[in-house]
Design a protein around this nucleic acid. Structure first.
Length: 950
RNA sequence: AGGCGCGUAGCUCAGUGGUUAGAGCGCUACCUUGACACGGUAGAGGUCGGGGGUUCGAUACCCCCCGUGCCUACCA
């Protein structure tokens, strides 16, 4: 049953082709894991892109590599699951929607919490699918039926379960301390979300006079405005300059209150004046100093959550923005003669990772996870190899971060996210006899009974019901002293007093809290689902180093804690994609390359192949568009190789072919003697390429795999085998139909090897041949193909002869159309091989005549090429130039002589002979004799020319 | 300040204790050969950043220096 082979266009047009296949794959559910549960599983969870995001180069690389792995393993017969999804990106998403609201002239408080969240869901429904659509455009073979979102019901249950059990275990706690506060996003940030950047600032020297003397101490600060909140000046206890002053009081300029001079060993006497002003409420260092003092130094907060000065800053400054206040403070000090000088000073300043606003350290009550024991566990799984980080250079960063890890601040003062499942009873009485309602502070969205904000207790007294209060609360602030309780299901009443006046904690969890559960929450946990049993732990996590701590470390901690198993066996850390100058791509620099533009221009396959070819371990990628263009040429080359094969099927087997499976079987069962040398050679090259590629992929050496397949297809299949096959076909060589079958077989295997990198073109080409498989994406990946081990060695004289002749042709600019007369002096095995493959040499080197034999003699006006085991003589009468030929050969001779000298020196070195391994010595000796032999024959030819051309 | 990495052809990068050091792009010459000019054939181009050391042998391993990039950190 033969089927005709489809017609094929002259050049490859990605757009026509790519459109079709993706929906074909999806419609046929090829990317759902095989139902056969006897197969070994292979699973990956995608690093969930931010739902507000759109595809950038980093995603493209990340997704391409995961897709290469998934498709490769799927073809190898694994039961593959690649889980896609997005995260809810609390701060970023909330910012987007708040901006929308601002355009409408309202803010979220006016809208109210429930309505606001509804708005965000609406926004998500409209815009949140963008990045998913783009991943599909890249060809990602995810199982979309399992797509997850960090805020969907299942994942929220996982978050709830984790939070409550950590809370019950005492590992989640609430505490007041300094945190990184973003005044623009008005929320706390974790340490990781505060990004430090060098900035030019100044160091201001200020006089702090003693209370009772005329003398003063000079302090230096980068933030003069914080002096309003100073509660001490600290000096090193060993600093002779200040030793006698410890315990004395100073008059704090502008504020007027008195503050003590205290001793603290962390103060560096070398820096500034050696005396440091201490502002415990606005500086992490100072907070630490304050807490080391006994009693603790007081905390005076002079900057509010909005970044403006509070009443504590004094009437002169209250309400000023922190930077305006800085100017005002400096001006006032100058006027009072207390400003000594201002020096230029560079220092690093923390910024909000979402909005770049300068972070303000502020004392607030926040929720924390005690990570100490989880971190220890997460360290040991990497140490003992249960989790393998590749390339392993990243292990060091991982360890150093994990060993110095601090408790994780998980609460955020925003609305979009998982609200913390903690409640407070407004009616219970505290230990000191007060009503808890006094600890709950409410800001109302609108004025009611003349009140805009007050404690819950006061609002009740003013006549508001619990329901009224809650319905109108724009923001809720709960004092650290309030008693709290948690629940796996939402409580309706206080477990202690039974009151139904309970208030839920207003904060939401850090988005990374839910991302940390991703490897098991996406598989159905806390339910013990089939997916969870089959696919956890996942096989590999592919990600960039920038979220090694944010995400990877936390997933390991949570996986160990709740699954008792690591979340993945391998972590492959890939490069950062930079622009062609090596700069980080960023919107502000304007050097962002949009992957979709590249895809539009060159096709998805070329783009993917470029990314894989660039992905050398441990090095960032400088993205150069020309490379993509180069790989588009490669796609076209492959296209045309297929086209050549099809055209010949039409010619040689006009009835068409059976199936490629059938043809493969015929090729594999063909007796070796029925195959030509080129046939056996290409089959052997194919087998080696397949095993190289498979090994490279196993080691995550994507670039090696990509270049191996490129090298094979272009430089072995196209450059040599197709050219050799032309001879077989045109001269009707014996068994030429078997050669055609070899071509089909090799192409089929090449397409399958290439499929993980270039899914679209390979499917298009593969499907254009008759076969029994539904899709190339489920066809077997070439592995352990039969080797024809002598073919390489046999082929090399043929290749040498052809190349030798071509080199002479090239060097003398002889047109390819001019047929040459050539004689080759060779004997024994080499002579046999050359004679047996006579016609290939004649055609590929474009010869008129070819003599081969041991007694071939050099004739006048012939160019010489000396190769291993043969001397090639090319007649070029008319073009022959004795001088040029002598120079050419002499140049070769010199090159050889110097190589020979090097080996001679080495071989005559006694220490080398004593100490070098025998195998190395043998190899060098062999090389030496080969080189010498070659040199002698060149010399011989030079002598002959001199004789012949006199 | 500490840590990590990089410096190999004009450009972008592979690579290895023993090779006559490789690839892609670019460049030069010739070629409109019936798969492909998104092509073919050939060629030019490198003291492997500098200096020292270990070794029989170093581009590769160690140290220092220079240049360059990144990460971490509470220098007020």
């Amino acid at each position: 049953m033969n089927a005709p082979v489809k017609e094929i266009a002259r050049s490859y047009e990605p757009k026509d082709v790519e459109q079709r296949w993706y929906s074909f794959w999806i419609d046929n559910l090829f990317f759902e894991p095989s139902a056969d549960d006897s197969k070994e599983t292979y699973s990956i969870v995608i690093p969930p892109p931010n739902v507000t995001g759109s595809l950038h180069m980093g995603h493209a690389l990340n997704v391409t590599l995961q897709d290469v792995l998934s498709r490769w393993k799927r073809m190898k017969g694994f039961r593959v699951l690649w889980v896609p999804g997005t995260d809810h990106a609390g701060i970023a998403t909330q910012n987007v929607v708040e901006k929308q609201l601002a355009k409408e002239g309202i803010n979220r408080e006016q809208l109210g919490r429930a309505a606001f969240i509804e708005r965000v869901w609406q926004w998500k429904a409209l815009n949140g699918g963008q990045i998913i659509h783009q991943l599909k455009k890249l060809g990602a073979s995810c199982d979309w039926s399992r797509e997850r979102f960090t805020l969907d019901d299942g994942l929220s249950r996982a978050v709830r379960e984790v939070f409550v059990s950590l809370f019950e275990e005492g590992l989640i706690y609430r505490s007041t301390r300094l945190i990184n506060w973003c005044p623009r996003c008005s929320t706390a940030l974790s340490d990781l979300e505060a990004e430090h950047e060098e900035a030019n600032g100044s160091l201001t020297y200020i006089r702090y006079p003693f209370l009772d003397e005329h003398d003063y101490i000079i302090v230096a600060t980068t933030r003069p405005e914080t002096m309003l909140g100073d509660t001490a000046v600290a000096v090193n206890p060993d600093d002779e300059r200040y030793k006698g002053h410890i315990g004395k009081l100073l008059r704090l300029p502008l504020a007027g209150r008195s503050i003590p001079i205290v001793a603290d060993k962390e103060v560096d006497p070398e820096f500034g004046t050696g005396a440091v002003k201490v502002t415990p409420a606005h500086d992490f260092n100072d907070e630490a100093i304050a807490k080391r003092q006994s009693p603790h130094l007081p905390f005076i907060q002079v900057i509010g959550q909005d970044g403006r000065m509070t009443e504590n800053a004094g009437a002169r400054f209250v309400g000023l923005d922190r930077y305006e206040c800085r100017k005002a403070v400096v001006a006032d000090l100058k006027e009072k003669g207390l400003l000594v000088r201002e020096d230029k000073h560079t220092h690093s300043i923390a910024h909000c990772y979402r909005c770049r606003t300068t972070i303000e350290p502020l004392p607030t009550a926040q929720w924390y996870v005690n990570v100490e024991s989880m971190a220890n566990d997460a360290i040991s799984v990497v140490r003992d190899g249960r989790v393998n980080i590749i390339p392993d250079g990243w292990k060091n960063s991982y360890f150093s971060w994990m060993e110095n890890i601090k408790d994780w601040c998980i609460s955020r003062q925003i609305w979009w996210g998982h609200q913390i499942p903690i409640w407070y009873c407004a009616d219970c009485t505290t230990e000191d006899g007060n009503s808890q309602g006094q600890y709950i502070h409410i800001k109302l969205a609108k004025e009611i009974n003349g009140i805009t904000e007050d404690t819950y207790a006061a609002l009740k007294t003013a006549g508001l019901s619990h329901e009224e209060i809650m319905a109108n609360a724009a923001s809720i602030n709960i004092d650290i002293q309030a008693k709290r309780f948690s629940g796996r299901t939402d409580p309706t009443e206080c477990p202690d007093c039974g009151s139904t006046s309970i208030v839920k904690d207003p904060d939401v969890l850090d988005t990374w809290f839910s991302s940390a559960l991703w490897p098991f929450s996406t598989l159905g946990w806390p339910e013990q689902t089939e997916d969870l049993k089959a696919f956890y732990p996942t096989s590999v996590l592919v990600t960039g180093f920038d979220i090694l701590f944010f995400w990877v470390a936390r997933m390991i901690m949570m996986g160990q804690k709740f699954m008792k198993k690591v979340p993945f066996h391998d972590v492959y850390i890939h490069a950062l994609v930079r622009d062609e100058k090596g700069q980080k791509m960023s919107k502000s620099k304007g050097n962002v390359v949009d992957p979709l533009t590249i895809i539009e221009k060159y096709g998805t396959d070329s783009f993917r192949f470029s990314l894989a070819a660039f992905a050398a371990q441990g090095r960032d990628i400088k993205f150069a568009e020309e490379r993509v263009e180069g790989y588009r040429h490669f796609a076209n080359k492959l296209w045309n190789a297929s086209r050549f094969i099809k055209l010949n099927i039409d010619k040689i087997m006009p009835d068409g072919i059976s199936t490629i499976e059938q043809i493969s079987a015929e090729v594999l069962s063909a007796a070796p003697q029925s195959l030509t040398l080129p046939d056996r050679w290409i089959l052997n090259r194919l087998a080696e390429a397949a095993s190289d590629i498979d090994r490279a992929l196993s080691d995550y050496r994507f670039n090696d795999a990509a270049s191996a397949v490129y090298q094979f297809v272009w430089h072995e299949l196209c450059d040599w085998y197709i050219e050799l096959a032309k001879t077989s076909f045109e001269r009707n060589y014996p068994n030429s139909s078997l050669t055609l079958k070899c071509l089909i077989y090799v192409l089929d295997n090449s397409l399958r090897m290439l499929h993980p990198f270039m899914p679209f073109i390979t499917e298009e080409l593969w499907k254009s041949f008759p076969q029994t498989g539904e899709t190339i994406s489920l066809a077997p990946y070439p592995a352990a193909l039969p080797a024809y081990s002598h073919a390489d060695a046999e082929m090399s004289p043929v290749i040498d002869a052809i190349s030798g002749i071509r080199t002479i042709r090239g060097e003398f600019n002889i047109a390819p159309s001019k047929k040459l007369t050539v004689a080759i002096k060779a004997s024994g095995q080499t002579q046999n091989i050359l004679s047996n493959n006579y016609i290939f040499i004649v055609d590929l080197a474009r010869l008129e005549t070819l003599d081969i034999g041991p007694n071939v003699e050099k004739k006048p006006a012939t160019m010489t090429s000396v190769k291993t085991g043969m001397e090639i003589y090319v007649s070029v009468s008319g073009l022959f130039d004795v001088q040029a030929e002598l120079e050419r050969l002499t140049k070769d001779l010199k090159k050889l002589s110097s190589a020979i000298m090097d080996i001679e020196v080495k071989l005559s070195n006694m220490e080398y002979r004593d100490r070098a391994p025998k195998a190395v010595i043998e190899k060098d000796k062999l090389k030496y004799s080969e080189l010498v032999e070659k040199r002698d024959r060149i010399q011989n030819n030079i002598d002959k020319i001199k004789k012949l051309e006199k």
